[in-house]
């Protein structure tokens, strides 16, 4: 029988490698044996941390639970599951997020334009229209509707546009209404950007400070990481 499970020591704890060449049943069987042996060898009350490395295999939530049930008790804990592979779906999403999506169009009332990652829109967002991205949003044209950056909660995202019209900007869970009726808030003719500051308050910044405030923007390599 091939070795389906290997135990290795690491500075932070133990690494359990589940070999992808073995069937899941074999893995489960050998893991049970291993755990029994380990529990015998370990002093009572001694805490052990495990990192499970699944190699070229992706475990479903069900299978993860099976593994956890075998290993975990009050002293044995699994810290994380690691894998050398990702699902096609995840890979495609990462690839999409790695480069900004370019759209040339008008987003009309009631329409929603969505993007994974950053979005560059050349065109207009009419009142009642929505542009939404998990990353940042850059608008070249008139923004009069809603721009929602960091749609899945990324508060480091920004919205860059000319904010001289009534509009609404959302970043993560924060909402900011851009109102021109307010005479104190004279809108600039220039392109500005909106970001969430350290106090979790939305703020409008001049383009000069973009590099200081969000140095990571524009540094996407095009690779996965």
């Amino acid at each position: 029988m091939n070795n389906a499970v290997t135990l290795k020591g690491r500075t932070e704890g133990f690494q359990i490698i589940l070999h992808a060449s073995a069937s899941f049943e074999e893995v489960v069987d050998q893991l049970k044996e291993l755990t029994v042996q380990l529990k015998k060898d370990t002093q009572k009350g001694h805490e052990l941390i495990f990192f499970v490395d699944t190699g070229n295999r992706l475990l479903s939530a069900d299978e993860k639970k099976q593994i956890s049930d075998i290993i975990e008790d009050e002293h044995f804990k699994i810290s994380s599951y690691e894998s050398d592979v990702i699902s096609i779906e995840d890979a495609q999403k990462r690839a999409r997020e790695a480069r900004p999506k370019l759209e040339v169009r008008t987003v009309r009332s009631g329409q929603i334009l969505e993007a994974d990652g950053d979005l560059l829109l050349i065109g207009q967002v009419h009142p009642g229209g929505t542009v939404r991205a998990t990353g940042s949003i850059f608008v070249i044209g008139e923004l009069k509707g809603i721009a929602h950056a960091g749609f899945e909660g990324n508060e480091n995202a920004i919205v860059l546009a000319n904010f001289k019209y009534n509009a609404q900007v959302r970043i993560g869970g924060n909402v900011h209404v851009i109102e021109n009726r307010d005479e104190n808030l004279v809108q600039s003719e220039d392109i500005q950007f909106v970001y969430v500051n350290d106090l979790h308050i939305i703020e409008v910044g001049s383009l000069h400070y973009l590099k200081t405030i969000r140095p990571e923007i524009g540094k996407h390599s095009g690779g996965l990481f």
């Binding site: 009142p127 609404q168 209404v177």
Partner: peptide
Amino acid sequence: IGLRNLDVILGLENRII
């Protein structure tokens, strides 16, 4: 719903969350 206007007439359009 789908063709809202009341918010526009009241000048509250961009406040809708």
